[in-house]
Nucleic acid binder design. Structure first.
Lengths: 147, 147
DNA sequence: TTGACCTGGTTGCATTCGCAACTATAAAGG
DNA sequence: CCTTTATAGTTGCGAATGCAACCAGGTCAA
């Protein structure tokens, strides 16, 4: 492998590439918690986290908030339901929709993982420095909003 | 859905979550180029980009540089080979390893996608502002390095 | 009320992924 | 040499994904 310059664009400066690598790196350690300790997939954890954070809502709402495909959400909801972490209740204003909400057990799991998440996030922010972490948050939000 | 505060950690501030969403958002538009126009998967594009940027190397090197699982790289290499974008040549110093290098066609595809990538990246940086983009790059590198 | 269209959610199917097991070669130590 | 251990790369298999098709319930207008 030669590391001399080649013509063309520079991969190391390509933001989507850097973002993906950083996201992967940041998610890797944390994934072990929800996966190994609770048997959850990333999507399942996300659905759980959204319900835990924002309270009861429909699958459609979760899609809108988290920008996750509805079929992914659908299957994650089914899995969480099977696992007893979430309850589904028919909406009384829309016969198609279901109101999703965490069960007590779901709340418990969310609280436990949430504590780990807080620690994990804190450690990461400390490594980056408070200022950089704050700036990062702002820029990431801008990127997300621009989709 | 209620958006009142709930106890526990705040999902909106969780860096791995923000990073994943931002990475997804940033990759989405660009993905259409290598996927729809060239039939490449993300991993295939990454392998191609690394070979295009850094020149001939082994699959193992690509794994080390890009932090991608070796089985993913293996399959991407096989696909690129089938597509005639890449050549494999046995290493003369290690009977297990193969030296990978882009064919002329592979170079061409890399150059074409590279131009689009450059534009895409430039547009993204302009939206964020030059200063913010530079800081972002630095912080992302720090996160990636800390894995 | 009826018909045309829209929307929340699920399912089928082909593709991709992750992990473990495997093959073949290399390296190190006796 | 021969045995042991490590490494480059591939493959099998179950799980997760993406996309299109689908079902059932709304919406809106004539």
């Amino acid at each position: 492998m030669t590391d001399q310059d080649r013509p063309g664009f520079d991969l190391d400066e390509f933001l989507p590439y850097l973002l993906n690598q950083a996201a992967e790196a940041a998610s890797l350690g944390f994934q072990e918690i929800y996966r190994d300790r609770y048997g959850l997939t990333r999507t399942q954890w996300r659905v759980l986290a959204n319900l835990g954070r924002f309270g009861a809502m429909t699958a459609r709402d979760i899609c809108a908030i988290s920008h996750v495909e509805k079929t992914k959400v659908s299957r994650a909801v089914a899995a969480l339901d099977r696992g007893g972490l979430l309850r589904r209740r028919p909406s009384d204003t829309d016969g198609r929709a279901e109101i999703l909400d965490l069960t007590d057990r779901g709340q418990g799991v969310f609280a436990e993982i949430g504590l780990c998440a807080r620690d994990y996030d804190l450690a990461l922010r400390q490594r980056l420095g408070a200022g950089a972490a704050g700036d990062l948050t702002r820029v990431l939000r801008a990127i997300i909003a621009a989709r």
